[in-house]
């Protein structure tokens, strides 16, 4: 008898302890679900790749050699206005120069079941995390993966490189938009206009178009002209690095407006 009691006790204890290992509060009877956040990189109607040439409304003819940015601190907004903050949500997006692989999709799992009406996320890294670069505890951030500054602590929020036709030089010259620093950490906030249901039985997608043309419509490459000469190649460069300079601020204000919610789907799985 006595031993049975002890083993029951052990059983109860173990169950209790095991469930206390789990951080999620399972108040909702339904199981958590997932959502895909699609960020499709576009220039006007065209998809961005590393070979096409795109023309901005200012007439700049632009070819990308790399198109990268960081998305972080994703929050999903429930129907009742409460918020689910996705833990350690830091994602490297886009396409790096010299590679074929491109990242346009984020899979967010373990979202508490419920009806959701909106999403918030940021371009860049929050000031607290951006104060240093050795952030292996924070999702995909780790440091030294090409989006860190090197000569300063923290990350490049966008890293767009390529070339454009410079009218004054009458030839293609390189450009770089590397923007970071706390002032350029930008909130993107959207309501879906309806609700989507997230749970174990549903598949959901939130689809944005990332309209890079909006940035080049706001800040003309020929208007900036040649500047910031790197040591080797003095007369062939247009760049905006860091911030908050005027131009970095203008670029950041424009990238804060480039995420256009295209649609959300929500389907039952079989």
């Amino acid at each position: 008898m006595k031993s049975i009691h002890i083993y029951t006790l052990i059983g109860l204890l173990i169950t209790g302890l095991l469930s206390s290992c789990d951080d999620d509060d399972k108040m909702d009877p339904e199981m958590p679900g997932k959502v895909s956040l699609m960020l499709e990189n576009k220039f006007g109607d065209a998809n961005i790749d590393l070979s096409s040439t795109f023309t901005s409304s200012k007439g700049d003819k632009i070819t990308f050699s790399g198109f990268e940015y960081i998305i972080s601190n994703v929050e999903l907004i429930k129907e009742d206005g409460s918020i689910y903050a996705v833990p350690d949500s830091y994602y490297f997006m886009g396409q790096r120069s010299g590679t074929d692989s491109k990242r346009e999709m984020i899979e967010i799992t373990d979202i508490p079941a419920g009806n959701y009406k909106g999403i918030k996320f940021y371009v860049g890294v929050d000031p607290e995390t951006n104060a240093n670069t050795d952030n292996y505890e924070k999702g995909e951030l780790e440091g030294g993966v090409g989006m860190d500054w090197g000569w300063a602590s923290g990350y490049k929020f966008i890293r767009w490189d390529g070339s454009y036709f410079n009218d004054a030089e009458n030839k293609d010259v390189n450009f770089s938009f590397h923007i970071g620093t706390d002032a350029n950490f930008k909130l993107i906030s959207n309501e879906f206009g309806k609700t989507i249901t997230i749970n174990d039985d549903m598949t959901s997608q939130i689809h944005f178009e990332v309209m890079a043309d909006k940035v080049f419509d706001a800040v003309g490459l020929n208007e900036i002209g040649l500047n910031f000469p790197p040591p080797a190649d003095v007369k062939t460069f247009t760049g905006v690095m860091v911030g908050p300079e005027d131009k970095a601020t203008a670029i950041a204000n424009a990238y804060a407006e480039m995420f256009m919610l295209h649609h959300v789907h929500n389907m039952e799985m079989n």
Partner: peptide, 18 residues
């Protein structure tokens, strides 16, 4: 660094490495 750009030794090391 001479301009104080790196806020700590951890973040700094990525610069000489890369």
């Amino acid at each position: 660094f001479w301009d104080g750009g790196a806020k700590d030794l951890e973040s700094l090391a990525f610069a000489p490495l890369t």
